[in-house]
């Protein structure tokens, strides 16, 4: 079997002596849509921040697309796209201006042409010349996503991409993510709270609880064992502190 596209090796982060991510080790294969679940404060965002080279791990390391996040952060950055939670961009600039800016920073050739291409791909050319300041959350999320794929990255990191979106927005986002995965071969690493989404889109999932990995498997294995959405939810709840609370009640 080939090298996994993302490999976490005892990845650890702590803040003021409190461990937020605790020696996380796991592999994510090329072409997967990986769903990362966990309660609020479990350490999902912290993990993404280390994988995207935004924060240095306290200890341990990871490789992304063949490069070590500690040793070759610049090479990692060339191969990843990142959509943070609540991405907002520059209000006074239009969507196209925002995107051309990030395309330049990513070293894209002919930024203006590439931006038009991506906006077409995301079906939102109508947003191109409007200022981002007036955008709805759904529109912002799309421009945020456009920003992340301008340089055709191998891995796309999404931090709770559906948060705050209406059902229509969630469906559009899901379709887009799946297209980026199947048509462009992007591997997706997605933090989420939505169990229903996981079952519909992901090829593998992991559950984080208090910084520790408590579950990691392929989705087909999970559904084979646990059946439908409801069962998946039960599995998740049983793995999280909220689940334990429910048992007590």
């Amino acid at each position: 079997m080939s090298e996994p596209l993302i490999r976490l090796d005892r990845l650890t982060q702590s803040f003021d002596g409190v461990t937020a991510v605790d020696a996380l080790s796991m592999d994510i294969e090329k072409g997967e849509i990986f769903g990362f679940l966990g309660h609020n404060g479990a350490g999902k965002t912290t993990t993404i921040q280390m994988l995207t080279t935004l924060a240095r791990p306290a200890s341990g390391t990871a490789t992304v697309a063949g490069y070590d996040i500690n040793k070759d952060p610049l090479e990692v950055r060339r191969r990843i796209g990142y959509v943070p939670e609540n991405v907002r961009l520059y209000d006074t600039l239009t969507a196209a201006e925002n995107l051309v800016f990030f395309a330049r920073l990513s070293g894209v050739d002919a930024p203006a042409r590439r931006v038009r291409q991506v906006l077409e791909l995301l079906d939102c050319t109508y947003l191109a010349d409007k200022r981002v300041g007036g955008f709805s959350k759904g529109m912002r999320q799309r421009v945020g996503l456009a920003q992340a794929i301008l340089h055709d990255p191998a891995v796309l990191f999404l931090d709770e991409p559906t948060s705050g979106l209406d059902p229509m927005g969630i469906k559009m986002l899901r379709d887009l993510v799946m297209r980026l995965n199947t048509e462009f071969g992007m591997t997706i690493f997605m933090n989420t709270h939505l169990i229903s989404e996981i079952a519909k889109t992901c090829t593998s999932i992991a559950v984080l609880s208090h910084g520790k990995l408590v579950f990691h498997d392929r989705i087909d294995a999970v559904t084979a064992r646990y059946g439908d959405d409801a069962a998946l939810e039960e599995l998740y709840l049983s793995l999280t502190p909220v689940g334990r609370l429910a048992e007590v009640a």
Binding site: T53, R77, L105
Partner: peptide, 10 residues
């Protein structure tokens, strides 16, 4: 989040 975006660029 623009700083996060910039700092994940090369």
């Amino acid at each position: 989040q623009t700083l996060a975006l910039m700092l994940t660029r090369p």
